[in-house]
Design a protein around this nucleic acid. Structure first.
Length: 554
RNA sequence: GCGCCCAUGGCUCAGCUGGAUAGAGCGCCAGACUACGAAUCUGGAUGCCGCAAGUUCGAAUCUUGCUGGGCGCACCA
């Protein structure tokens, strides 16, 4: 709908220019929006206001010219008016709204899917926690944001791949192996001292116990190096499997798991650095190898090969992003914890040196989560083993409420997550408000059928029975749904969907309390049943993108 | 010290990429089930949009400077 009006405006503008009524102008961005005040029409355009400065004319006069040249081949506009400083307000004909309902009814679960992306390949990389322990609440937010963003991009015509980067090549992994070895020895009655740098969680003991059960005490006799190597690998695998299970139960499923180790095969990292050296992006100071990130606006150059000959995490990350783009992705989206923001200029420098544009790598920062229980903060630390795991949150709060809580706020704002509030099945929990609207509609439809009223089909339904202002509002909101999805995808802002849903559910609940859907008037009943069927479709489709269930009963 | 992010009713947050009278939930007060589900609805109070300039037809939104908070500033990941 919005697009149609934009097109009409563009045509009118071209005609105005051709007629010489307006000078040649470039139009960077024209906004067509649904105004808050219904007196301002169904849609309003600010085109004349934007053009005023360029055309050096009074905005109202420009609006007048545009209005005069407006043609309406599809006959959708009831009237237009010029208002305020120069807005052009559009009033859409009723039968156009009715056809919009028909469109939803026909498209069903496809309603809201649009081809904005044109099949471009996008990769979304998220979570990517190194497998040294179970996922905790901090990872959960990034997981949901990445997952929903991916769904959103799929729905808007992108070809999306979700990827988890396994940081399984660094020091942290070595610490993991060491931690398991120490617990292993301890369980076999050796006295050990457990260093600060090691992981203290109970899951370490569980893994050690498992190794003893399956392979006995033979690693007491092998060299420490060999034992750590083996324990690192086995513990990493076990933990990664558990991470996958937790994610699956949280509704997050990846297309690819990419191991950092993969990058080092066939000297991949070294070869890439050699190439960059030849191109002049990498230089040596005798002991260490540096990347000239300052060429791309970073505040200092960064080390890629350390004095001890080991490549840094950054070196691997350049190779990783090279690998991503080599796989043919047009856009790569990284979702990081906000504490990594200082890393951004470096990464952008890296991909630009590789010959890719800065715009092709989008980085979304997800702010840290403040975990509370009944208003009191809960302390967390992976290493000490004090943390609330994703698993515990799932068991305690439930998947729908947990996901919705993380999705309600924009990802760059701080989030307080209170376990006691999140698990309450009450009005303090917005997810139920939306789900309740869906369940309520299901219940009405069921009631209608029990009373022998067949569910209406468009051809036999006279939608002109829908005369209440709330009914018009509801239809307009349903039409706005694809626009909301598209806007959220463009801006990479999933939180817009919960806000849309809350509003839709709110208007529906209010309407429900004021008007009876099933009444003595058959025509009115059919029209209203048809309307709520379409509301149900939109609620379901939107919840589906969020990965939240749309229950028929609660 | 330098850099990034944030600042909107008592609390938690939106504000659609500069638009018309700044919104919602929670909490508070007063009401609505012999009616399709009261996990709902109706009504009410609450604001120098952190402060100060600037940009223009128009600023919560953009620029600059302050104030206050978070986070970074590794040859860790």
């Amino acid at each position: 709908m919005k697009n149609k009006i934009t097109k009409l405006l563009e045509n009118a503008l071209n005609i105005s220019v051709q007629k010489g009524q307006l000078p040649e102008v470039s139009l960077p961005y024209m906004e067509v929006e649904a105004p808050a005040n219904p007196e301002h029409g169904d849609y309003a355009a600010n085109a004349a206001l934007i053009l005023a400065a360029q055309a050096k004319q009074n905005p109202r006069k420009i609006a007048q010219i545009i209005q005069d040249n407006l043609s309406d081949p599809e006959n959708i506009i009831g009237k237009t008016q010029i208002a305020g400083p120069g807005f052009i307000n559009f009033f859409i004909k009723d039968d156009v709204w009715h056809k919009a309902l028909k469109n939803i009814d026909e498209q069903k679960e496809k309603y809201g899917f649009i081809n904005y992306g044109g099949g471009k390949k996008v990769q979304v990389e998220f979570v990517s926690a190194n497998p040294t322990g179970p996922l905790h609440i901090g990872h959960a937010r990034g997981a949901v944001v990445g997952d929903v963003l991916s769904s959103l991009l799929s729905a808007t015509g992108y070809c999306v791949s979700k990827e988890y980067y396994i940081n399984d090549a660094g020091n942290q992994m070595n610490n993991l192996g060491k931690s398991v070895l120490l617990r292993y020895r301890e369980l076999l009655d050796e006295k050990i001292e457990f260093p600060e740098t090691c992981y203290r969680g109970d899951y370490i003991k569980d893994i050690a116990g498992k190794i003893i059960k399956e392979e006995g005490e033979k690693y007491l006799h092998s060299t420490e190096e060999a034992a750590i190597g083996y324990f690192t690998s086995i513990a990493g695998q076990i933990i990664l499997e558990e991470i996958k299970i937790d994610l699956r139960d949280f509704g997050v499923v990846f297309d690819e798991y990419f191991s950092e180790k993969e990058l080092y095969k066939n000297d991949g990292v070294t070869k890439l650095l050699d190439k960059l050296k030849k191109q002049g992006f990498v230089y040596s100071d005798g002991e260490t190898l540096w990347f000239k990130t300052t060429d791309f606006g970073d505040e200092k150059d960064r080390v890629v090969i350390r004095k001890n000959g080991e490549p840094t995490y950054f070196a691997a990350d350049i190779a990783y992003h090279q690998n991503k783009f080599a796989r043919g992705f047009d856009t790569v989206i990284d979702i990081w914890g906000a504490d990594h923001h200082g890393y951004m200029p470096r990464m952008w420098a890296g991909i630009q040196a590789l010959g890719y544009s800065k715009e092709s790598l989008k980085i979304i920062l997800v702010q840290l989560v403040n975990l509370l229980r009944g208003g009191a903060p809960v302390a967390m630390s992976t290493r000490s083993g004090e943390f609330v795991t994703l698993r515990e949150v799932l068991d305690e709060v439930g998947r729908d409420a947990a996901r919705y809580n993380f999705l309600m706020r924009r990802s760059d704002s701080h989030l307080d997550f209170d376990l006691e509030v999140a698990k309450k099945q009450s009005n303090e929990n917005p997810v139920y408000y939306v789900q309740y609207a869906h369940a309520r509609i299901c219940s009405i439809l069921k009631m209608a059928q029990e009373r022998g009223i067949a569910l209406p089909v468009y051809a036999d339904t006279d939608l002109s029975f829908l005369r209440e202002p709330e009914e018009k509002t509801l239809i307009k909101m349903l039409v706005r749904y694809p626009e909301t999805i598209c806007g959220a995808a463009k801006a990479l802002e999933p939180h817009r969907i919960p806000f849309y849903l809350n509003e839709l559910a709110g208007v529906f609940h209010s309407y429900y309390n004021k008007n009876k859907v099933i009444s003595e008037n058959d025509g009115l009943t059919a029209a209203r049943l048809f309307l709520i069927m379409e509301i149900k479709i939109v609620l379901q489709n939107a919840l589906n993108i969020l990965g939240v269930s749309a229950p028929e009963k609660m």
